[in-house]
Amino acid sequence: MFDTPHRETSVDQTEIKISARGCQVYYGDTHAIKDVSVEIEDKTVTAFIGPSGCGKSTFLRCLNRMNDTIDICRVEGDILLDGEDIYDPKVDPVQLRAKVGMVFQKPNPFPKSIYDNIAYGPRIHGLARNKAELDEIVEKSLRRGAIWNEVKDRLDAPGTGLSGGQQQRLCIARAIATEPEVLLMDEPCSALDPIATAQVEELIDELRQQYSVVIVTHSMQQAARVSQKTAFFHLGNLVEYGETGHIFTNPEDPRTESYITGRIG
């Protein structure tokens, strides 16, 4: 019943990074995610779209066990990362989150300097052996976060002093600094203006080269612009999942069509 990751790798250059099977999520008595199975490919941008409250963010937070911090939340089913069940009792969520980084809806830089914001992850995970290495990681991450040129002269300035778009790119750079394999983004542009949004979208496209990126978005245009695969969620169900172009031009499910054409959502 399972597809082994190897076979798909051999078929077309992409491998399955995350694979969820029969995933159920409950908030107390509320059944928030109903039997979702999805396979997320490596080096691909996957977009989760759907109306508000459809469970797309909830599902995203399951992928690096951020829901653990909410007492009443319960997850059932399997979610495999590289074939390992991330909800296995032996798995340390701390280790998992180092592999599956996350960027949030609202930019949330720590009240520390820009340098310390980036260095935070590498420091706690012990990625740098000395100051020079740490400097290197910080510079590399900021460059990849496409913000290096704007902040290289003021690494000691507080991260909270940046503009909204800069803050979000700082947060992305911060997530990259721990060298994750998957990057989860929860509506990363919803608090940003159009120019900053364009910058972040460009960044996401570049990140595809190295990471598997999963992005939750409200905006169908954004999903169409940045993603290769799209999953449409509705009322806790995964309604449709496939190539982005396919979903937007030729949806199979009537609900997807209604959403895309603007009748629901």
Binding site: N64, V94, L96, R97, A98, G101, F110, I124
Partner: peptide
Amino acid sequence: DGSYGLGAT
């Protein structure tokens, strides 16, 4: 959340 998301305990 930002800190947990980076894998901090």
